[in-house]
Each structure stands twice: as structure tokens, then as C-alpha cells.
Amino acid sequence: MTSLITIENIEIKAGDKPILSVPRFELRQGEVLGVMGPNGAGKSTLLKTLALLAPPGRGSVFFQGQEVGDVLALEVRRKFAVALQQSLLLDTSVYHNIAIGLKLRNRSRKEIKEKVAYWLEVFKISHLSKKHAYHLSGGEAQRVNLARAMILEPEVLFLDEPFSALDFPTKVQLLKDMKQVVENTKTTTVFISHDLVEIKYFTQRLIILMDGEIKQSGPTAEVLSSPNEAAAGFIGEWSELLS
């Protein structure tokens, strides 16, 4: 698989405290990558760096082999989509929330209407189209959040714990639907989660991030079954809980 995003020599600090230190990392075209690690491990900072939402410190970010500077940042960022743990919907209807990314790209009304209708259907929320976003349940809001991201037909989709605040049945259903969407669209995805079950179900490759460093990287099943010494403490506690 070819590299879609590459980061090199990333050193991000908060004051003197290192937050993220990654000499080199590649996100491969078409893969679904899981990112796990304890709180404060640097997972969200890694996502922000990859998604060009935060400066890479002294390091560099490459998209399809080309270094992304300030000039290219917006253009490349518009090839990505991000869905966070909080749905963070705007103070307007479901329809307009899903349409916002296309509106920002000045797409035609006809295209917006067709695409919104399609993604409302995919996420099974067509009946909510006219409802105000603030009147949705947690699960509904997260479906709108994911539809808002997918409508952009991103080359890379970043998911930062989008299911963690949902109750179990809602989470299971949405996880299944989302996996289907990602598989059907073959979207390269970065999926941050604390949940081993979600990671096992959703991802093909997994990296374990601890203290701002990638401690292990490999196929998800392999990392989970044979964690190295550095990752064992974190994975081991999970495995113990599940067994």
C-alpha cells in the first residue's frame, strides 16, 4: 500500500513537557488504522497533526509525497474529514449541519441537496432532516456528525472516539453501520479509541501510543495478541479485563 500521509521528526511540547515525539510515521492508502493509548498519550495531538489542524512543531507533514506548508494546508485539509467524540453540531437544522462542508466549498445547491439526501439515507436519519440539531438524542447527533464528515467524500477520515459517549446498543449499531460505510467507500481511516472491542472490530492496523511515542505498530490482531514489552502494560490490563 502506498503512503497517503507521512509525518517526519514531529516534536510537540507543551512548555518543556513533550506531548508527541514521532520520528517517522506513514498512513497507508485504504487502511483503517487504530490508535490506542492511555489518557494523555498524545492520541488527539497525533490526529490534529495528521489532519493539519495543528502545526507539526519542527517536523514535516507530507500528503501523497508532497510536503504540506501553510499555502497548501487548506487545500489538503479539504481532502480530509474529522468526527470528534462530541458531535459539536451547529445551531441549525440537521440538513444544514450535514450540508455545511459542501457549502464552505461553494458547491451548487443541486449537488448539496442530492448528497445530503443520500447521506441522510445511509445513516438512517432522513426523518430528522428538518429537526433542529439541538433537539437530537446522543446517538442521532453522532449519526449527523458522521454524515457531515462522510458527505465530504474524504480521502482520509479521522475519528476521535466518536462512539465513546453512546450507550451500548446505540454504539453497537452505529459501529456496524460505520464499518459498512468505511468498507463500501474504501475510505482511509484513522480511528482513535479507548475501547479494545471497537478497535478489534473496526481496524486492520494498530498503533499503541504512550507518553507521546509510538510503542508498537502492526496488524491489529497481532498487536493485541502479542504486545511488546512497552505496550504490554496497557494491552495486558485490557486483556485481563476481557478474559
Binding site: 479539504r78 480530509f80 470528534l84 459539536l88 464552505l104 465530504l152
Partner: peptide, 18 residues
Amino acid sequence: INEKLIMQIKALGATKIQ
């Protein structure tokens, strides 16, 4: 304003003016 909302809007592809 939630800082994450600002991040989310940027992630949706907004220019500074947008």
C-alpha cells in the same frame, strides 16, 4: 466557545473568514 468547535469548523474546510 468550545475550542473543539473551532477545530471542528476548521476540519470541515472553513477558511479564516468562513
